[in-house]
């Protein structure tokens, strides 16, 4: 009898905890923002994004959606998150697709080779992401830092979204620390294969895109610090099997006009703003030539994008007459 009571108490305690987590998850999703990019995309007006850019810091440092909007009129969003694992990308994409119907997903490939400490590391990330998909509080808990008394007293969800979202998920990094290491894409037949867990989630993303009629494109941002030919071969092997387009921009640095003395912000790890402008211009041009994306600049639903453009140019130092954007 005592034993049964203890069991009941344990189950009741755990159930109460689950309910608390769920309740707080709702509260935090509405009010806070644990992850700026991930949250901001969920605050975008529904079904307004034609393409998404996803990945880790290589992603948010390389493609500026507002540059592409300025030159081509394609409405997109950069959902890059620091240190992102591909597992997280999958769950985030699932969430986004509940609100958006993009035609294209551009997936940066660095996260496919993100190493976790030891064999349990990848599994740990899988579990973390799965748990966060059931209890969003685990993902958005850092929102407590942004909750204000006024937020709580006036129940106004998503109020800050449009004001704070001029960069559309892109990270503006004007600092320049040159890369001096020389050529890094030396051709080789060696292959760095994608590990089983990232491969599984990459397949999940590809399947999800296929199911939703979204074209998946893999791209790798120029990064001597992170990329090499073995990784290129690993991704190439995968895309050939699944017939997916792969744009390895590390092999197109000359075409892009990458100058490592000013196009990197941290010695070849991430692109600086001038580098990102070059990649954004290339991606925009590629999208206009190879996909059926429409120029939305004259569409009245996108008036706010046009309104944000001067602010974007100001933020990125491009409103000065002599500015080259750096």
């Amino acid at each position: 009898m005592i034993r049964r009571r203890k069991w009941i108490k344990t189950v009741a305690f755990l159930l109460g905890f689950v309910l608390l987590l769920q309740g707080l998850s709702w509260l935090f999703i509405v009010r806070g923002s644990g992850n700026r990019n991930a949250m901001s995309i969920l605050r975008q007006e529904e079904n307004t994004l034609d393409y998404l850019v996803m990945g880790d810091s290589e992603c948010y440092s390389s493609v500026s959606p507002m540059e592409i909007w300025k030159d081509f009129g394609f409405a997109g969003y950069n959902c890059g998150v620091i240190g992102q694992h591909i597992q997280y990308t999958y769950y985030l994409l699932e969430q986004i697709l509940a609100k958006q119907s993009p035609h294209l997903v551009l997936l940066e490939t660095n996260a496919l080779f993100r190493s976790s400490s030891g064999g349990g590391g990848e599994l740990e990330t899988v579990v973390d992401n799965a748990a966060a998909s059931y209890f969003p509080l685990l993902q958005y808990h850092n929102g407590w830092q942004k909750i204000r008394i006024s937020d709580i007293s006036q129940f106004r969800p998503f109020e800050k979204a449009s004001k704070n979202d001029i960069l559309k998920g892109f990270h503006y990094r004007p600092q320049i620390v040159p890369y001096t290491g020389g050529e890094y894409m030396t051709p080789t037949d060696k292959v760095r294969e994608i590990e089983p867990i990232p491969l599984h989630y990459l397949n999940c993303i590809a399947d999800l895109c296929e199911e939703k009629g979204i074209r998946l494109i893999l791209y790798s941002s120029p990064s001597p610090d992170n990329w090499n030919y073995r990784k290129h071969n690993g991704v190439e092997q995968y895309v050939q099997e699944r017939q997916i387009t792969f744009l390895d921009l590390n092999l197109k640095t000359e075409e892009l006009g990458i100058d490592w003395s000013k196009d990197t912000t941290d010695r070849g790890d991430h692109l600086s703003f001038p580098g990102a402008k070059k990649v954004s211009a290339y991606i925009g041009k590629w999208l206009s030539e190879n996909t059926g994306l429409q120029d939305m600049r004259s569409d009245e639903r996108y008036v706010s994008w046009d309104e944000m453009l001067p602010e974007y140019l100001k933020r990125t130092g491009q409103n000065r007459p002599d500015s080259s954007g750096s």
Partner: peptide
């Protein structure tokens, strides 16, 4: 007692430095 326990666990869940945007610290 349960309020105390829930409070303790939630303090970890909410104020802990983990999740997206944080790198796991060995």
């Amino acid at each position: 007692r349960w309020s105390f326990y829930y409070g303790a666990v939630l303090a970890v869940v909410i104020f802990g430095a983990y999740g997206p945007g944080y790198r796991a610290v060995d």
